[in-house]
Structures are given as C-alpha cells and as structure tokens.
Amino acid sequence: MGILNKLDNSVEQFESGNIIITSMDKLLNWSRLSSMWQMFFGLACCAIEMMATSASHYDLDRFGIIPRPSPRHVDIILISGTVTLKMATRIKRLYDEMPAPKYILSMGSCANCGGPYWEHGYHVLKGIDRIIPVDVYVPGCPPRPEALLEGLIKLQERIRNQSLAKHIA
C-alpha cells in the first residue's frame, strides 16, 4: 500500500486493516506533494530541458507532476528561462491567478539572477525573485534534468514539512 509507505512512522494501523490513523497535516501534505500540477509554461532554453524532463526519458509523471494549461489548476510554476521586463508583468499576473497554496521553482541561472545577461541585459529582469517569492532555486545554464528533479524533490520536502493548520490559523 503506497500510502502506508509514504506516511510510514506517523501511521497507526488497526488489525482489520481498513482503518488508519494519522495527523491531518501529514495526510494533506502527502496528497499535495504527490500531485503537484505544474503550469504548462516555458520561457526559454530551460523550457526545452523542462520538456525533456517531462518526456519519456526522465518522466515527471511518476512524481505526479502533470502540466496544466490554466493557472487556475496548478500548484507549482516553473520559471524556466530568462524573464524579460516585457514578460515579467505577465508572469506576475499568472502568479496572482494561481490558487494558494502555490509554489515557485526558479529554474536556471537566468531566472535566479539574470544569468549570462546580468551585465548588459537592458531588457532582462535580474532574477524572478524581484517580483514573486521563490521556494526553490535550481542553478545551471540550463540545469540538467537530474538537477531539475532534485529541485522538485526539495520542493516536495518543503511541502512535507509544512503545516496547513498553522497556516489557516
């Protein structure tokens, strides 16, 4: 049973086998982290690596990460590439349209800090964190699919340790 493996030490199982007891937070977090829907949205070079990661060779689906075209459906947004000033306002708007709780993964040097365009890029935003808060930064130009997967696992860890109850109160 997958759920028992995931919830492991915090689960108490009764003998008949159909009742388990766990904390609400653990259950909610488990369900949230194993179905992180991402926005179907690519910006630049990193978007190709993102596509390669979600295609057959690396297969993002096994983490429950499925691309969705509408910001209303998604939990995470991967900022995959250079954010220009013209695009920045649109990204801010997409972010605002996402329902909470929402997470941002900044993929690649450009989204982290401007990357190779930091010095003379008159039209490049030097880091997505100047307009929206970022949960996980993945360095690289572009990051390898393995690096992106590592970033997503880090994000899962972050969700696992959150408490929604505290959040609401």
């Binding site: 910006l43 630049a44 590439g81 250079t82 220009t84 013209k86 695009m87 649109r90 190779p116 365009y117 010095e119 003379h120 890029g121 008159y122 039209h123 490049v124």
Partner: peptide
C-alpha cells in the same frame, strides 16, 4: 514579439 528579447546584439558589442 519581444517577450524573450535578451539583448544579444548589445552583449555582442561588449
């Protein structure tokens, strides 16, 4: 266009 204008030509000059 221009949502990915990364100023290549300006960089090349520098």
């Amino acid at each position: 266009l221009g949502y990915l204008h990364r100023c290549f030509e300006k960089h090349a000059e520098a």
